[in-house]
Design a protein around this nucleic acid. Structure first.
Lengths: 345, 345
DNA sequence: CTGAAAGCGCTAACAC
DNA sequence: GTGTTAGCGCTTTCAG
């Protein structure tokens, strides 16, 4: 293995000079730099990142903790992960992949072993067990999601409350008065995943303001489950003309089933979803939707973390607090004017 | 930060003794070990992994290179990634996440900087640009997928050829004589992704042996594309009674469209897919399928890599060559006896 | 069974 | 503008 000392010897300079040429942390005369660079090239030298990490006390590694659940919509998680990896590379960092399975212990492992300079946490629960160790250990972190008590934490997320409101606004303007929400799986609510409830809150608030009737039913993905839930809804509120949808697993089934039940989209009922654009675009009926900006969230998380690391090398705390991205609604083919009131189906 | 030296001092032993207690690499008397362990506990000592990596010349990190493509079925990739992460942890390794975007340069980065002890490569192309650096640098590696020239490489994959054959066997036994293959997107074939062609080869071979007529059409996912391809197929071969399907993005559209075209599954046409079980189970009609063992592949890859690292610390080469998992077909609701020959639809 | 000491390869004061 | 040198915290010979 070629070491920095080898390079220095061959260039006839001291090791520190080579180091400084590499880091740019002090001025080097042109001829010296030239010789060092030639030496590096000729020897095919590459710095040993482990040694650098030890000596400099920074590993240039960011840890990313991704959920390990099957009831979540994997593509979104994957997209965020890849965005994090890509953004991290763009800032000179590598990414260490931790599974949510590890929980708080994973956070400790990383902090105690000094494996990473900071951590990005995905799938943050309202009362997330990983937060206490994070605070105790002072590990620089950014959360994707919003816990119940975000004080002193650096969080980024979609403004789900506003997203919910936006969906309702759109439907209200189209004249809809009877709204049904096909929610996330019950497990998601029980677990205390904030986004589901925030979306609902936004929907509720705006539906109330607009004088709409509202029915909310949690719903697991899959045909049988959606069929059951849909039938209950239509039974209870036959006049329902609009659906808001948050569970990506329910998109296909819902559209399919509505057609089977003889309700045309968007002529008879409108459907609006909160989901990734890709899902909305590729649905049987392209969906009017508020997009879930997976890529943006990942990139943003990294940028905030990198900033934090630069500002306070060695464990500074969040300076920016919570950042909620404003939702954007794209009108596609699944929403239209409420049908003229007539005899129930 | 608590260091090993602190622990040693407090326990009244030498640093090396503490190190040996930790590594178990030499016998330690019970009382000594006891004092060291107490000292560790009381001080809350955790070894600095960077220092350990430098001194021991192993980082206990595995690199994982995941594709960064949108035309691939992300859930499979995600599942493999998580399986790799989980398996790696079970063997005491952390996982570094690299994106395929980095290509050969990524492999070099890891090897040159000694960031990881080995690497797992996903989405391997027939003529993969990452393989030359891998061979040159002697970085221990396992590929998930099968390149054109696997000599000297450690590869794991599903036996896609056998998977194709298995699908055809099943359909042949049910009496089908006219078979259509809805293939992967054209881009996938062009790129030289081996699995698509291997599946097709298996299908071709067996269909020939069984005297079946066979039509293959590449097909991108999405409703419009599948609709177009399906119509072409039915136009060209109205007597088609069986479909084999490999592109997960085409599952929903195909089933939907068949229904729209008045062909009942499985009464009029049978559909068999090569896809993850989860996709097969959650389709509108649960699909008879050969499962894509994402989790198994990930775990297997890690196990082989770990073995390789243990056998030849510091860059040993593959010892086991190629391992292809035998395919397993699960009969669900989408396949049935060929309909009695009658007038075309 | 235990200790002393020489590194691992790089960084960053501290000198000049 | 450059060199000297003491670490970073752990592992691992070599001695005993």
């Amino acid at each position: 293995m070629v070491t920095l000392a080898d390079v220095a010897r061959r260039a006839g300079v001291s090791p520190s000079t080579v180091s400084y040429v590499l880091s740019g942390k002090r001025a080097i005369s042109a001829p010296t730099r030239e010789r060092v660079e030639r030496s590096i090239r000729e020897l095919g030298y590459h710095p040993d990142l482990r040694a650098r990490a030890l000596a400099s006390r920074r590993s240039d590694i960011l840890a990313l903790m991704v959920p390990l659940r099957t009831d979540l919509y994997l593509p979104v998680m994957m997209e965020i992960s890849l965005a994090v990896a890509t953004a991290a590379r763009a800032h000179g960092y590598d990414v260490l992949l931790l599974t949510g399975e590890e929980g708080p212990a994973g956070v400790r492992r990383v902090a105690d072993g000094v494996r990473a300079d900071g951590v990005v946490l995905m799938d943050v629960q309202l009362d997330d067990a990983r937060l206490p160790p994070l605070r105790d250990l002072g590990l620089p972190a950014v959360l994707i999601g919003l816990p119940a008590e975000p004080a002193g934490l650096n969080c980024v997320d979609l403004d789900f409350t506003a997203a919910g409101s936006l969906c309702v606004d759109h439907l209200a303007r189209l004249g809809h008065r009877e709204l049904a929400v096909l929610g996330e799986a019950p497990a998601v609510y029980e677990r205390g995943t904030g986004f589901a409830e925030r979306t609902l809150a936004g929907i509720r608030e705006r539906a109330g303001a607009a004088g709409m009737r509202l029915l909310h039913r949690p719903c697991q993905g899959g045909y049988p489950e959606v069929a059951h839930t849909l039938d209950r809804i239509l039974d209870e509120r036959p006049g329902t003309t609009a659906f808001v949808l948050q569970n990506e697993h329910a998109v296909e089934p819902l559209l399919s089933l509505l057609r089977q039940r003889g309700r045309a989209v968007p002529e008879d009922v409108s459907v609006v979803a909160v989901c990734p654009d890709q899902v909305a675009e590729h649905a049987p009926v392209p969906l009017t939707s508020v997009s879930l900006p997976a890529e943006g969230l990942g990139r943003l998380a990294v940028e905030r973390l990198v900033t934090q690391l630069a500002d306070a090398p060695g464990g500074g705390w969040a300076r920016d607090g919570v950042l909620l991205l404003p939702p954007v609604l794209t009108v596609r083919d699944s929403s239209g004017p409420a049908p003229a009131p007539g005899p129930p189906h």
